[in-house]
Simulated assay, not measured.
Amino acid sequence: MTLEDLTTDVEETYGELGESIDVELDRETRTELAMLLAATGADADELVRRGIHALFRTTVDTGDLDFQLRNGYDVSYDEYLMGMSVDEMAGESQYPQRDDERRYRM
């Protein structure tokens, strides 16, 4: 898959998510959410948003996001943000592929 495939998948998923999602909570998650709500005084929606931000940041910082993107799309998060691959940035895509069989023909 490519950078274009990733961009398309992100845009499609973004559109499918809409403004809110329903999430089923298991016992452990419900207990942890209740503890955070009691301790912070925030509302559940805000804590879920913060949790997603924290998970995203951790995934980026540890390199896990790049690992997953490289496996699935053969791009990194930086390449996604810039909208071009490292090869495109280096100008490799502007030169024709080398043909060693015809290289020394006159």
Score class of each variant (00 low, 15 high):
68 Q>A: 10
11 E>Q: 15
63 G>I: 04
51 G>I: 01
16 E>N: 11
28 E>K: 13
8 T>G: 04
87 D>F: 09
95 Y>F: 13
96 P>Y: 06
99 D>V: 05
4 E>K: 14
51 G>E: 01
41 G>M: 06
105 R>D: 10
90 A>H: 11
6 L>H: 01
52 I>P: 01
100 D>L: 15
90 A>Y: 07
22 D>E: 15
8 T>H: 14
81 L>Y: 07
55 L>S: 13
62 T>Q: 07
81 L>E: 09
28 E>G: 07
83 G>T: 03
73 Y>P: 00
96 P>Q: 03
103 R>N: 11
66 D>C: 05
83 G>F: 04
71 N>C: 11
89 M>W: 12
89 M>P: 01
44 A>P: 07
63 G>N: 04
23 V>T: 09
25 L>Q: 05
53 H>I: 09
16 E>G: 07
79 E>R: 01
17 L>N: 10
55 L>W: 13
82 M>P: 00
86 V>D: 08
28 E>Y: 12
59 T>M: 11
77 Y>Q: 01
84 M>P: 00
100 D>H: 13
102 R>K: 14
19 E>S: 10
96 P>F: 02
23 V>S: 03
15 G>L: 06
68 Q>N: 09
76 S>L: 02
98 R>M: 08
19 E>W: 09
57 R>G: 03
23 V>G: 01
32 E>P: 00
53 H>Q: 12
26 D>A: 06
16 E>L: 10
44 A>R: 13
